Computed example of a mutant assay.
Amino acid sequence: MDNIVGTKSRLVWVVNLSALALVLLWLFPTFGLLVSSFRDRDQITASGWWKAMFPAEQTLQYRAPGAGDAVDENGVFVISGNVFEGGRGSVKSFGTSARDPGAFPAGETVPADDGADLTVLQNGDFRLTSATEFEGRRGMRIFVTSVTPPRFTFENYGRVLGAEGLGRAFLNTMTVSIPATVIPILVAAFAAYALAWMEFPGRALLVAGVVGLLVVPLQLALIPLLKLHNEIGLGKSYLGIWLAHTGFGLPLAVYLLRNYMVGLPREIIESARVDGATDFQIFLKIILPLSFPALASFAIFQFLWTWNDLLVALVFLGNTQDQLVMTGQLKELMGSRGGDWEILATSAFVTIAVPLVVFFAMQKYLVRGLLAGSVK
């Protein structure tokens, strides 16, 4: 009964459910990264992103001011402050030892070190009192178990795009990715038209060579190509990395565009030639407009590859702040700020934001371009 016209095979439902599962598996981490990029370090440490809209319970450690900040109030020396340091929260309990951070309820006065008394209120205000002067430059540690309301901030993006250097790396990545996407498309479009519609000796061998280059790993050419760049004076520069990305992306570009152009109606091209159009006019006015899906399909692949690239950028560009791309800058942040999860989450989302915009803007052309030439 599955083959009756108008009915759907069970396999169709399996395919649809599998596609939905893949979409959810991709969407949840991306949305979680977006939510985490607006949270501070304490919230990320206390709870997962799926609890961002709910109050979070966490244990905080606060170092009280030292003896030099004590105030004499009628013979009683007082050190006061707020354990939240200007933030918001509600103290459930507190303690003076890491072994038992919730030993006392909020609002209770308990004995502390050296005969002093400690009181921590629910709003985070604390008061350390002593009949004698405090000794020691460092203040005592106060541990509190608090309930922090949900909050979101744009400070992470300000730090990342400013002080953390990712703003400069963003511009460097755009400088690399846009030319490295446009140049191979221009070169491959001319080559694909020649291989598809122009008769000349050795055309089949060239097509076979292009297909063969698709399986060659780019790592084999990194060192020889870098030596060539140094010998001809390119060195580590933007021009060098543009040419490197162009060379590595050309086989796929020529293959996709040639398959698409071969499937275009021959009658249109023959009619144009009868009317006296040259190959360049046919290519410019007929082939290019009709090949836009294939061009957009390759542009997505090439832009995503160059945007997320780290290996080619490290080899052909440089490690200075004026040349470091976003993937390299993110690697530096992970090395020096491994505990700053809010910075890493924000940096990672800034890194993937532009590819997401490009993909969703051009995704309708992706399947059409990839299926080009598969059927007649």
Rank of each mutant, 00 (worst) to 15 (best):
S37H: 13
V254C: 05
I183L: 13
T109S: 14
K51N: 11
I185Q: 01
M326E: 03
W197G: 08
L314Y: 15
T351K: 10
V78Q: 00
D113E: 14
R127Q: 07
A21G: 11
I268H: 05
P201R: 14
V254M: 02
T119V: 12
K376W: 08
K8G: 04
Y255S: 06
N74L: 12
F298K: 01
T278I: 06
K331W: 14
G328P: 00
N16P: 00
L225R: 02
M198L: 15
T109P: 06
L27W: 08
F170S: 03
G212Q: 06
L371H: 00
T175W: 09
F301G: 01
A372L: 02
L24D: 06
G75H: 05
A52L: 05
A19D: 00
S237D: 07
E57V: 07
V350R: 04
N3Y: 15
L333E: 06
Q43R: 11
R10C: 05
F280V: 09
S47A: 12
D2M: 10
T109A: 11
L220Y: 12
A353F: 14
L225V: 03
V357P: 04
D100M: 11
W13N: 06
G249W: 05
L24P: 06
K364N: 12
E108S: 15
V144N: 06
G48S: 13
